[in-house]
Simulated scan of single mutants.
Amino acid sequence: MNTLNKRTLLKTAALSAVALAALSGCGKKEEAAPAAPAAPAAAPASDKLKIAFMYVSPIGDGGWTFQHELGRKAIQDKFGDKVETSFVESVPESADAERVLRDMAAQGNKLVFATSFGYQEFVQKVAADLKDVKFEHATGYKQAANVATYDTKTFEGAYLAGIVAGGMSKTRTVGVVASVPIPEVVRNINSFVLGAQSVDPSIKAKVVWVNEWFNPPKEAEAATSLINGGVDVMYQNTNSPAVLKTAEERGVRAFGKDGDMSAFAPNAHLGSAVIDWSPYYAKVVGDALAGQWQSGAHWWGVKEGAIDLQKIAADVPQDIKDKVEKARAGLKDGSFAVWTGPVKDNTGKERLAAGQVADLKFLTAINFYVAGVEGNVPGTDGK
């Protein structure tokens, strides 16, 4: 929790104690005091909708959390004095998350955004106790009467980046620095490779897992390992620009993810798959203010303006840029889906038949690598 939030908590606690003492004293005096005209009712302290955000990494990560923070600022600007927003950053996916969620509710927040997959069970537990608070959980799959889930189709951004990678790799070997082995991340890895193979079917891919969302030293070490293994274009599913910075130092190319990371590595940067949470956040807050908030699962992508590949490098050939634009247009109008068969895994097993389009159940349960990716997903045998 930042210093300002700590100070605010202390101040609030102190004022509450003073107010309680004053009320107790007044109660005793009123028993003996003669009747007096009723004083005007005190105005409520605030009629604003209080909204809190819980972040898994620092707001300065340049990626995932930074984009959520931009979304928070956007709704504060859009709704002005109708809302009051706050955040707590770098909250581990552990019992600390439950403590922070309960503290947010105790501070009067009635709408809480929990922005990482690992918060799921803590959100469910707290929401069951606090029925008057509405919770929004990013990337999760469990809903309740007062819990909605939401996500961005980051795999669409990964696919667009893959097209560029397929056109730029000279070694025909691309790589991914991956965070945590959950379907969301595996889906992004595969989508990136499918995009690259749409340009060159011979493309191979390597993956190194760091098992954390935000750990710049480990991310840099993983990137170095990929480069040493012959990778010359890298994607990432981690929260810092360490992969890009390593690519810059080693003279290879890479992509930013979630935020625009071009400034961190101007020579290595091939593009950034940027998430814009503000359209979704604006809708949710608007619905809450209007008394129309609803639970459910919400998944926005290129079509809704929630994800796009931005800042494509100037040296990317025009025909590759045209392929990106064609895929982007298809995602926008619904004429193209990334996960359309035939798709085989790296053991040769058919996962989607020719012409078959993956449904939500398939997409949210991917636990295999597509053909061309080395190894197996951690915790599986590839089956």
Rank of each mutant, 00 (worst) to 15 (best):
L331F: 09
E98S: 14
C26G: 09
K82G: 04
F117V: 08
G167T: 05
A41G: 11
E69Y: 09
K321N: 13
N215G: 00
A358D: 06
Y281S: 02
D381L: 03
G305L: 06
V180R: 05
P378Q: 04
G27D: 15
N211A: 03
N267I: 03
P266E: 15
A290H: 02
G348I: 00
L23R: 13
A38I: 06
K206P: 00
V18F: 11
V210I: 09
V133G: 07
V180I: 13
K383R: 11
A45W: 00
E249I: 06
K218W: 09
I307T: 11
P279Q: 11
Q310S: 15
C26Y: 13
G195V: 04
P40H: 06
A36G: 14
P183A: 07
A268N: 02
I366A: 03
T152D: 05
V91N: 13
A273M: 10
A36L: 15
A337Y: 11
D308L: 01
G341A: 01
W293R: 07
A178E: 05
M54F: 08
A313L: 15
D96Q: 12
E93R: 13
Q76P: 11
L4G: 12
A371H: 00
I59R: 14
P217F: 00
T246H: 06
A268T: 07
T380Y: 07
E156Q: 15
A354E: 06
E184D: 12
A288L: 01
G27P: 15
W277V: 13
A128R: 11
G341E: 00
E325A: 12
V123S: 05
A41E: 15
D200C: 00
A247P: 03
V164I: 11
G162A: 07
E31W: 07
V186P: 12
T380H: 09
V208L: 08
A288G: 01
A282W: 04
F155C: 02
K82Q: 05
S202W: 02
A273T: 15
L10Y: 08
A128D: 09
S295C: 07
K131G: 01
G118N: 08
G140S: 15
P241E: 02
G372A: 02
N239Q: 12
Q197R: 09
S272M: 10
K78Y: 11
S272R: 10
K245I: 03
A13D: 12
T12P: 10
M1L: 13
L9V: 09
F113Q: 10
V56L: 14
D287A: 02
Y150G: 00
E248D: 02
F264K: 00
G108S: 03
Q120S: 14
W277K: 14
L70C: 10
A42F: 08
G291T: 05
P317N: 05
A106L: 14
V199S: 03
Q76T: 12
Q236N: 08
V316E: 11
A329M: 03
R351L: 06
L194A: 04
A105T: 12
S24E: 12
K311I: 01
Y235S: 08
P37G: 12
N367I: 09
M168I: 05
E248F: 00
E219P: 06
K383D: 06
W293P: 04
V316R: 04
K48M: 05
S169I: 07
